[in-house]
């Protein structure tokens, strides 16, 4: 029965399976998985794409072995503050960033290996009432936090050894920023979604808040996942945990919206909903390039092709062990699917 649970169901109209099971890892000492991610890790001159698993009190690094097996390399013990999420840092090696806190993030920490004293270690990058955090290219970390009535939006540049090289404060909007997304292909552009359903645009070089664009209340609590600019328009991929169901588009999990940054006007481009006959709303998910994946309230994982605008794969929930996490791998077309019991299944999406 487990083999059945690990196998994607074929959706109507698709001729071949495009999500293939590769391997499974299970931390026998853990039963409280809160997040999973992948990270490039170099040891003895060999760089490998490793898996990072987090439970509330510890974070483990796993390296791939032959025959689709995994070996735990190290476990960082983190003390009393629970881990909330892993924060991937694109284009970095030997660095894992995590967010810790109770209900909301109170601390951001780096986990790393120090060749100077030949040991694994951890260091605090930021503390405060942190509302959102995102790892950016070139070892940068952006976060929004609140102190009294003031909001701070800050970029921290990290060195390869995990030191904070530089800090830059961005001009904050009045409302709280709940999520960030880099604008692909524009190193100095960043977008964020706010608590009153606006999209903010910053210049990361100057710290300027360039524009704030409201997107209406039809899809409240929208979270940005990806942004890119094309033909003078800014396209933002948003998820919608609280979207209203409609006959035309069902329960949309993701939506692509085009914004004109010059006029602040917007228009919906595409919905990503479940195929007819499949129930479930968006719980959490991730977008990579034109691929979107989400865990649904049914305990299933769905994958969409945002270019085709359709659901391309569905992992059904097990009878007693639902999917709780889904992340795209940092390289290639890998998908990491996690369960609450701490097991992680690696799939190949093609």
């Amino acid at each position: 029965t487990e083999a059945e649970q690990l196998t994607p169901v074929l959706l109507d109209g698709l001729r071949e399976e495009n999500l293939q099971f590769v391997s499974k890892l299970k931390d026998s000492s853990s039963s409280c998985a809160v997040d999973v991610s992948s990270v490039w890790w170099e040891a003895a001159g060999c760089r490998k794409l490793c898996v990072v698993t987090a439970c509330e009190s510890s974070v483990s690094l796993w390296k791939p072995l032959a025959l689709d097996h995994w070996e735990k390399v190290y476990t960082w013990q983190l003390g009393e503050i629970p881990v909330i999420q892993i924060v991937p840092l694109p284009d970095t090696c030997n660095l894992v960033c995590i967010a810790l806190g109770n209900l909301e993030i109170g601390e951001i920490r780096l986990l790393l290996y120090s060749s100077e004293n030949n040991s694994f270690k951890q260091s605090v990058v930021k503390t405060g009432n942190i509302k959102a955090v995102l790892g950016l290219k070139d070892g940068r970390l952006v976060s929004s936090s609140r102190a009294m009535q003031e909001q701070q939006v800050e970029i921290v540049s990290l060195s390869e050894t995990g030191r904070c090289k530089d800090r830059l404060t961005l001009m904050p909007p009045e409302e709280t920023v709940l999520a960030f997304a880099e604008v692909e292909g524009m190193r100095d552009a960043l977008v964020g979604t706010t608590a009153v359903n606006s999209v903010a645009v910053w210049n990361l070089k100057t710290g300027q808040l360039l524009k704030k664009m409201h997107m209406g209340y039809s899809y409240p609590a929208s979270i940005c996942h990806r942004a890119y600019s094309d033909s003078g328009l800014l396209f933002v991929v948003l998820s919608h945990p609280h979207a209203k169901e409609s006959e035309s588009c069902g329960n949309p999990a993701f939506r692509v919206v085009a914004f004109n940054p010059k006029t602040a006007r917007s228009a919906g481009v595409m919905f990503s909903s479940l195929p007819p006959g499949h129930a479930g709303r968006y719980v959490e998910g991730e977008v990579k390039d034109a691929w979107a994946a989400a865990v649904l309230t049914s305990g299933a994982i769905a994958v969409w092709d945002l270019l085709l605008g359709c659901c391309t794969a569905l992992l059904p929930p097990g009878s007693d062990n639902r999917w709780t996490l889904v992340r795209w791998s940092a390289a290639g077309a890998g998908l990491l699917a996690g369960r609450a019991d701490g097991s992680v299944c690696v799939y190949r999406y093609a």
Binding site: M186, D188, N203, G232, A267
Partner: peptide, 23 residues
């Protein structure tokens, strides 16, 4: 270049907004 719903667009929107926004 313009779009009837979204208004006139600019390929250089990022540079233009950066020169207009307060520092």
């Amino acid at each position: 270049c313009s779009d009837s719903d979204l208004g006139p667009v600019s390929l250089d929107w990022f540079e233009e907004l950066s020169s207009e926004a307060p520092p």
